[in-house]
Amino acid sequence: MADHAHKLEILRGLIKFKSNTQKIWGVLILLSIVTAVEVVLGIYKPAALKAPFLGMKLLNWIFIILTIVKAYYITWDFMHMRDETKSLRRVVVWTAVFLICYLIFILLQEGGYVFDVYHDGFVKTDF
């Protein structure tokens, strides 16, 4: 980076930092809070969040969403994606996101199918 211009806003401009160093510490605090929430939920597992939602427990969806939030801030602020050109950002993120979603959909679908085959008694596993 020839020019050291950093975009110093996170959360769509809700929080503005004065310097890049300050932004780094701010993002650390944000990531720590998210991790702490995950750990507390992971230890206590509130019964209310065990309701099934879109094929998984609601709690698991919360974990996955919080993980993606963390991944976003690591990529955008630690890896400086926020300061790259829009096209570089899209080349990297869209490619990966598309392929990963595709892969996960296919494999989880297949895994669920194999479970059903076992479960409905075509294969006896406990011989």
Binding site: I100, I104, L107, L108, G111, G112, V114, F115, Y118
Partner: peptide
């Protein structure tokens, strides 16, 4: 994803 596959299985 392979881990997820085995886990769903």
């Amino acid at each position: 994803a392979a881990y997820g596959f085995s886990r769903f299985k």
